[in-house]
Write a protein that binds this DNA or RNA. Structure first.
Length: 435
RNA sequence: GGAGGGAUGACAGAGCGGACGAAUGUACCGGUCUUGAAAACCGGCGUGGGCUUGCCCACCGUGGGUUCAAAUCCCACUCCCUCCGCCA
């Protein structure tokens, strides 16, 4: 949620910044008008309530002095006031709810570094990385045997079975088999093990309450993108960010304890409602995938470093796996609702000849903290909102695809990077499954 | 699923219709004392909101209700604990 006090203080600056994200000044003026109305109603209601409290005190005094006539008279006055207060309170609630609903739909104010743009086509590429680049090697020339899409390799080697996945849960629910399943498990463990120096590993629930989804900004705006279990009032989490951000919801953290860092591998569920018919082949876009998330609560001063740390860790994974990737500075049109600044990592997938998003590293400033009410107490005793920062390290379905394509050999087998050997029982070669 | 008990400030724990935003203890932050520390003593110490910045309002698990007045009474829900049943 944006800062209403700041909007009041500098309406033009906030309007201008949000205009870059397509929020009209009219919408913001509506909010400002509602705020003025809300405060006026609030003052009237509070005045009435103060008066009722005072009269109640008088009734108490009168009763104690056995002055029942006065008590009865004052009670009567207070009762009438109570009627008015009820009406005033209803008005406050009505306008307050309306104001809050509108505020919940407003995206975060973008950081100055965020470039203007309409959609993903306007994201700005910051740099690329490929194996050997540091030694002056040119962009890799992928051989013919690497130019095979992963869904074909998956079928050929018996490690990815999209048909069975579709049979069980519908299309775009992948089913990994044999060495393919083990590779997925290896990637998750490989990443988690590398984060444990500074990040506490969690294994949160895969479902979340509505208020948990509100905290990150996924609700109310993106309800259509999420799977809902209506009978139980639960939502399937679209990312580990959802439970991690709510770990300390409603709490005040000692400044000395910051940054508080968590990592977790979770299943991520996405309806992909707005992407019907796009990128439906293989693992390009799926309804369920595993992802390791890195997360931090921090002070505003720590946010820059916390963001850089997560980005660095995500890059180190891709480098350790020897995969070609690039960094994108997301433009205003592609930025997530709650984010103020996001760097995407895209891995190069030679078989499909495309860059695939495998991580988003985002800084939310106090937008999520305000919604989730996560604050910290400074050394001087002041209470401030924390900043939240998170990023994927990494989304495995697409990394799986890139790994399998990149390391496909001329003989059709896949020779996986040695860093994964400890997680594969030492066997880094995937051969056709015979059984 | 059944029966009982509980939820109050950082923590422990009183309060069970009126002067209670809430006793007391611990922790914490000052100060006195001390060569220093400890102890002792003194003072402070919840969060959010509104405006006339000194006051007012809200908050005692959550949501309703009763009342002139609710932490306190009533109803529903959630969570935690104990016991029984069932179960991966």
């Amino acid at each position: 949620m944006i800062n209403l006090a700041q909007l009041r203080r500098e309406p033009e600056a906030v309007k201008a910044a949000l205009a870059r994200r397509g929020v009209s000044a009219v919408t913001m003026d509506e909010i400002l008008a509602l705020d003025v109305e809300h405060r006026a109603l609030l003052q009237e209601d509070e005045r009435l309530r103060a008066e009722i409290k005072e009269l109640s005190r008088q009734v108490g005094d009168a009763r104690r002095n056995k002055d029942n006539d006065t008590a009865e008279t004052v009670s009567q006055t207070s009762r009438e006031l109570g009627e008015r207060e009820r009406t005033a309170n209803d008005a406050v609630e009505r306008v307050g709810t309306n104001l809050n609903d509108k505020l919940l739909m407003i995206p975060n104010v973008p950081d100055p570094r965020v470039p203007d743009g309409l959609d993903e086509g306007d994201n700005v590429e910051l740099r690329q990385w490929w194996a050997g680049m540091d030694e002056g090697a040119p962009f890799p020339t992928y051989a013919e045997h690497q130019r095979v899409p992963h869904w074909e390799i998956g079928t050929e080697l018996g490690i990815l079975d999209m048909e069975s996945g579709a049979k069980l849960a519908g299309s775009m629910f992948p089913l990994y088999r044999g060495a393919g399943s083990r590779l997925l498990r290896a990637l998750g463990s490989f990443s988690l093990d590398r984060q444990l120096d500074d990040y506490e590993e969690l294994r949160p629930p895969s479902f979340a309450l509505t208020e948990t989804m509100m905290a990150t900004g996924h609700l109310p705006k993106s309800a259509d993108d999420m799977y809902a279990i209506e009978r139980d009032g639960l939502w399937a989490i679209p990312t580990g960010e959802v439970p991690l951000t709510s770990m300390r919801r409603g709490e005040i953290i000692d400044e000395a304890a910051l940054p508080v860092r968590f990592t977790a591998q979770t299943a991520c569920f996405r309806r992909e409602a707005g992407a019907a018919g796009k990128d439906t082949r293989g693992l390009l876009r799926v309804h369920e995938f595993d992802k390791v998330e890195l997360f931090a609560y921090c002070t505003p001063d720590q946010a820059e470093d916390a963001h850089a740390d997560i980005l660095r860790r995500a890059e180190e994974l891709l480098q350790a796996l020897g995969l070609t990737y690039r960094l994108l500075n997301l433009c205003t049109g592609d930025l997530g609702t709650a984010s103020a600044y996001t760097i995407d990592l895209e891995v190069f997938s030679p078989g499909v000849d495309r860059w695939l998003e495998v991580s988003s590293v985002s800084w939310f400033r106090d937008y999520q903290a305000r919604r989730a009410s996560v604050r910290y107490r400074t050394a001087e005793g002041k209470v401030e909102l924390v900043h939240t920062v998170n990023g994927s390290a990494l989304g495995w379905s697409r990394v799986w695809a890139a790994v399998v394509e990149t390391y496909r050999q001329a003989d059709g087998t896949v020779k996986l990077p040695d860093v994964l050997a400890p997680y594969l029982g030492g066997d880094t070669t995937i051969r056709p499954r015979t059984s």
